[in-house]
Design a protein around this nucleic acid. Sequence first.
DNA 1: CTCAATTGCTTGACATTTAAAATATTTAAG
DNA 2: CTTAAATATTTTAAATGTCAAGCAATTGAG
Lengths: 159, 159
Amino acid sequence: MSDEQRLKFDDPALKLWLRILSVTKLIENEVRGNLRESFKTTLPRFDVMAELYRYHPKGLRMGEISQNLMVTNGNITGIIDQLAKEGLAERSADPDDGRVFVVRLTSAGKKRFEKMARLHRDWIDGLMAGLNAEERDQLLELLSKLRNSLPERLDKAHE
Amino acid sequence: MSDEQRLKFDDPALKLWLRILSVTKLIENEVRGNLRESFKTTLPRFDVMAELYRYHPKGLRMGEISQNLMVTNGNITGIIDQLAKEGLAERSADPDDGRVFVVRLTSAGKKRFEKMARLHRDWIDGLMAGLNAEERDQLLELLSKLRNSLPERLDKAHE
DNA sequence: CTCAATTGCTTGACATTTAAAATATTTAAG
DNA sequence: CTTAAATATTTTAAATGTCAAGCAATTGAG
């Protein structure tokens, strides 16, 4: 009983998960601050624009965006509303399916994103510079293995 | 020009960062759903309780909680308000410094957390089961190296 | 065809989060 | 002592997020 009484935090899997979380938060917060200072924009908006940029000019359905970014549907509705109001993205009806909206960046949106993306890439390069190429590859490999081992059900995006 | 014109996403550091993010989100969403289904609670509440549990019985200041969890101050105020209302945590004034509140789990809070933590640990064990012990250690090692290489300024928590 | 089930998206209620301003207390310089 | 600066927390406003319910369009079993 006395060993079960006091919960420990030294389960190796748990420790690994907490380490993943802390690295993620540290970098995420840094990027969030940089986006705000350099471009007066937010991380979620940047993420959506990146997703749209990657798939322009074909565009993406609302549902594809939320699936790929792993957030809920209603969330994306609001962010696209904003981007649309700012003239950075636009919805267009799908001629084959009346329920679907296809979202694309406007040319202003593309131009804006390209400006942000170059700096963003530099930030990430800088933050990852503590690992050499081999370590980076190893880390990527291990994370890929972990991701691919997760229950299929979790991974609706896939890539 | 033609190579710069069309932005690429294949920068190795960027690819690694996106992989870290996707693994994090997949696991986080799974845990969030499990907490809701099994305990009708939320991930942020669980995180705060875990942090408090780890440091009971000494308790933590509001600011220590937000620093350790890497979220903003105002955020924690609301969550502690909730936990206090539910009788799971309590604030007490610091006799030496009138600005400070020290927060502790109540015994009900401790008991509740222990119940959740065991299941939570099992979920994480399950989600990490795709890696063997050696891979897990390697991954932890690489993430630690990455975290320690990040600018000091980012890491106010430290552990 | 017909209609129940499914799908894609939006809406609404509410919780979380950040960022910045406000409040209260302590510290420290003079 | 006085008072400006620093610190700890809360409050506020705006954005983001989940979840569930709702609506409209499509699908598919009969």
